[in-house]
Design a binder for these strands. Structure first.
Lengths: 252, 252
DNA sequence: GAGTGGTCTAGACCACCTC
DNA sequence: AGGTGGTCTAGACCACTCG
């Protein structure tokens, strides 16, 4: 008779380890507390250090652990809820600099303008609770600002940050029809990783926002949020205070 | 792909490898094409297989590669845009089953009802282009449906799927005030991973949706989307087509 | 059976931090 | 100096897929 053996295969050691460690940090450790070091844990569980690290990698991806070189591995704080919308974001984002240059092919295609068109790219960072949680490149074709009077402060050369503020102020005067967003998983490359104070390869949530004005694409923002510390929130804020602290698994 | 030199420098080998491989799959390989196997690549680049795998891990996390045991490593197709909203989702989700049980502490807390309250949990999967891209647990406290007449089809016992459809139909008749969403990174555990046809530990985008009716939380949905293949889209759909990406070719 | 990716080991050295 | 996590090696065996 057909004996269907589905669970005949034992689960990998690193996955079992993850489960054990997850229970441990949920019950025996407090946020911010340092857990035993990797060499001790691997000895205690009787596995190679690489195997233990595989389990820690998982928990770090889930935002449950933070590893600090030279320090140790800490239990992570719950993720911060970060509202994603143009409202009430004014204070959250800090302009860093701005470059104005002809658009490369790829960027021009994404903006729907001819290659070589002049585009302002504003770089901003978002700081939440004293920590940089996101960086953004906001691309604004110069033609989008044609109707908006230019802002001239002085004859002196503007710093990058001043240029950024000038572009943002002009953009604010545009009446926007709406926004369209996409969210996907990515990794931070060198420059972004540095701004986020994380090593290259750090997982990030990439939010692409299209701003429409006059039925056309007026600007494009590419924001990258630290996936380990951020929970992006959308829609009516403060609808219900309830927050599912941990992912809710079915209670069968 | 060419045998590139590894610059002996500050950045880790695996990160440099990732860059080299990324350029290669962008320029020399088509979607769906199998790249050389790990042992050959590690030999060609003069690194240990584990190091090469670290680079492939990154590219897989970015959704650029797909690894299939026994087959090889393939260049992934661009991510699918998946609209996230209650509109036009009717067809996308397929009910699987439904369990009705008293809420455990954690779930009750998330729903804002007393522990032990009767809660319907509808399990659904979302199929896009023939592939399961998401699973969802939709939690509906029975008290939310009090005002909606129960649907009685027969005296016979209903299958899980029939129960699910019944709950969904009743839920549809509620007038909703709005929805509030959060998106964060997670990993799929055993059951979810199986539904998504992926191994445990697979990165997923977890979307938590709160449905409000009458100023109260009427239902809570926890949806997990495959992070490797999905790009979640919000807001006005079809505003402008987003997708800078790279030239897409397909292997025959 | 041959080839693939997945897991695991037991080391080694490095970069970073604190004392 | 001593401890931590980060990187890297050179193997080994396993699970899966295919011809």
């Amino acid at each position: 008779m057909g004996t269907a053996q589905l669970a005949a295969v034992p689960e990998p050691k690193y996955w079992h380890l993850r489960t054990v460690l997850l229970r441990a940090i949920d019950s025996e450790f407090a946020t911010g507390q340092v857990i035993p070091n990797e060499r001790e844990l691997s000895a205690r569980f009787g596995v190679a250090r690489a195997t233990l690290r595989q389990a820690l990698d998982q928990l770090e991806l889930e935002g449950r652990l933070v590893r600090r070189r030279g320090i140790g591995t800490l239990v992570a704080a719950p993720r911060v809820g970060v509202p994603v919308s143009r409202r009430e974001e004014g204070e959250a984002w800090q302009p860093v600099d701005c470059v104005t240059a002809p658009a490369a092919d790829k960027l021009a295609g994404a903006l729907g303008v001819p290659a070589g068109e002049l585009v302002h790219t504003v770089r901003r960072v978002r700081v939440e609770q004293g920590q940089t949680v996101a960086t953004e490149s906001l691309h604004v074709p110069d033609r989008s600002l044609e109707q908006v009077p230019e802002i001239r402060l002085s004859g002196a050369a503007l710093t990058g940050e001043e240029q950024a503020r000038a572009v943002l102020r002009r953009l604010e005067r545009l009446t926007m029809d709406g926004e369209s967003r996409a969210v996907e998983l990515g990794v931070a490359e060198a420059e972004e990783a540095a701004l986020l104070q994380r090593p290259p390869g750090t997982p990030v949530l990439v939010v692409t926002t299209q701003f429409a004005a006059g039925g056309r694409l007026a600007a494009l923002a590419v924001s990258t949020y630290r996936a380990d510390t951020c929970r992006l929130t959308f829609g009516e804020t403060g609808l219900v205070e309830v927050r599912p602290a941990a992912p809710v698994r079915t209670a069968s």
